[in-house]
């Protein structure tokens, strides 16, 4: 079933990533981690469908925020990140998926691990945690190419004060801030061991990113003793933007 949402706000997160806020009158609410399909239809009837994670927490005002990265060869993302304007209407299908989700009834420790725009559904979980005033302990390990590619910078920074409810660790793969203790590189076993919940706490882990990122992280978590059943994964790829 397709619904129609109206664009009510646009916000550039980085040079190539934009958040679109939609008002969807018949939105049935959603759970953090779910995604939607967006369908664009050209005047000749050709249509393209792509999946995008929901970035916002559930709310009573029927708002849905999607954070979308522009892919150079993309068929849909260049339109959504450059041409869409406030007042435009978009077709949406969803919310979709009940497996890669964090629900308010979960009280166990949560480990979030995101690569690039894989942060988006994890941010929905962090925001939901706050909305629901959950006391579940959260940790986020966020792998980004470089500091300027970090999404939701101010919001994540605000979490990192003393007595922080969500511990945030950044891992840069290409370039780091000056004086950063760790040279640029992929997330490895020592970073997992030093910054994520130890396996004996039986945390639920949510891993989202490119397929190669997800395979690598899931392998590291399993090798460090995490039960495969407690690792939830969502993969997206540049081949057709998530699809």
């Amino acid at each position: 079933m397709w619904r129609v949402g109206t664009v009510v706000a646009l916000h550039d997160e980085t040079a190539i990533v934009r958040t679109i806020r939609l008002k969807v009158p018949d939105w049935p609410s959603h759970v953090a981690g779910q995604h939607v399909d967006v369908r664009l239809t050209a005047s000749d009837g050709y249509s393209a469908v792509r999946s995008y994670s929901i970035a916002s927490a559930p709310n009573s005002e029927n708002y849905v925020e999607l954070t979308i990265e522009r892919l150079p060869e993309g068929e849909v993302s260049p339109y959504l990140t450059q041409e869409v304007a406030v007042g435009d209407r978009l077709e949406l299908r969803g919310p979709i998926g009940g497996w890669f989700v964090w629900r308010r009834c979960q009280t166990e420790p949560v480990q979030l691990i995101g690569g690039g725009s894989g942060i988006v559904p994890l941010m929905a979980m962090i925001r939901s945690r706050s909305v629901w005033r959950s006391t579940a302990p959260f940790r986020l390990l966020y792998s980004a190419r470089e500091p300027s590619a970090v999404l939701y910078q101010d919001e994540l920074h605000a979490l990192s004060g003393h007595d922080c409810p969500v511990t945030v660790t950044y891992a840069y793969t290409r370039a780091t801030p000056k004086g950063w203790p760790r040279p640029p590189g992929r997330v490895d076993a020592s970073l997992i061991a030093n910054t994520t919940w130890p396996a004996n706490l039986a945390a639920t882990s949510y891993v989202c990113g490119s397929t190669s990122f997800v395979e690598s992280i899931a392998g590291l978590l399993t090798a460090s003793g995490h039960e495969p059943d407690k690792i939830r994964t969502e993969r997206f790829g540049p081949t057709g933007e998530r699809k």
């Binding site: 399909d37 979709i96 497996w99 397929t211 190669s212 994964t233 969502e234 993969r235 997206f236 790829g237």
Partner: peptide, 14 residues
């Protein structure tokens, strides 16, 4: 690594 996962097909299957 050119696959995604069942989450990606869920919209179409819905």
């Amino acid at each position: 690594h050119d696959y995604l996962d069942g989450n990606a097909a869920a919209g179409e299957l819905s």
